[in-house]
């Protein structure tokens, strides 16, 4: 119980700090590396929420693939590798106000509504039940039965994005 909370504290702190650095750093490549930290911490949080498959997918897809694509983007747009002064535009103030305003409202609503609600305890539940209700097998079953149509739609979307990205980026 306490171990979980400590783990959450460490992960949440590293996620938030890295996210803050991501939006303030003066170095594009560092930003991509901070993104890795954020994504990995968030992925570890998924394990705390008993969603190990999503956590692994997060690592594979985000940290493995998307960050690499970002680094390609950085490289192909010939961003300066290293310190760069002009990464922020002139509306930092507005952005800060908007973000803090949003955060205030969100926090107020969440604390007001959920109060001290607890996540259900999983320690007493048997391993078999856990596997059947929220394990990887259950996710697979749900995707290929209940959510088969959304799954197919997503696959078509990926195909469309693939074709679209090629059409946009190719030279002719």
């Amino acid at each position: 119980m306490i171990a979980e909370n400590i783990a959450f504290g460490v992960l949440a702190a590293s996620a938030v700090l890295a996210a803050l650095r991501l939006v303030t750093t003066k170095n594009v490549v560092h930003a991509a590396l901070y993104l890795v930290v954020v994504l990995a911490s968030v992925g570890a949080n998924y394990i705390l929420l008993a969603a190990e498959f999503v956590a692994v997918v997060q690592l594979l897809v985000y940290v493995g693939a998307i960050v690499v694509i970002f680094l390609f983007g950085v490289m192909l747009t010939r961003a300066q590798i290293g310190h760069e002064s002009e990464l922020d535009n002139d509306q930092r103030g507005i952005a800060l106000v908007t973000a803090l305003f949003l955060l205030g409202i969100l926090s107020y609503v969440l604390i007001d509504f959920f109060q001290d609600d607890k996540l259900p305890e999983l320690t007493g539940v048997s391993k078999a039940t856990l596997q059947a209700t929220r394990g990887t097998g259950a996710v697979g079953d749900a995707i290929f039965s209940t959510y088969l149509v959304p799954f197919e739609v997503v696959s078509v979307l990926l195909l469309a994005a693939l074709v679209g990205a090629i059409v946009l980026a190719r030279r002719d």
Binding site: A19, I94, A95, T98, L100, L106
Partner: peptide
């Protein structure tokens, strides 16, 4: 919110 800040300010 950090993401929103980043989208607006970068």
């Amino acid at each position: 919110c950090i993401g929103v800040y980043g989208v607006l300010a970068r």
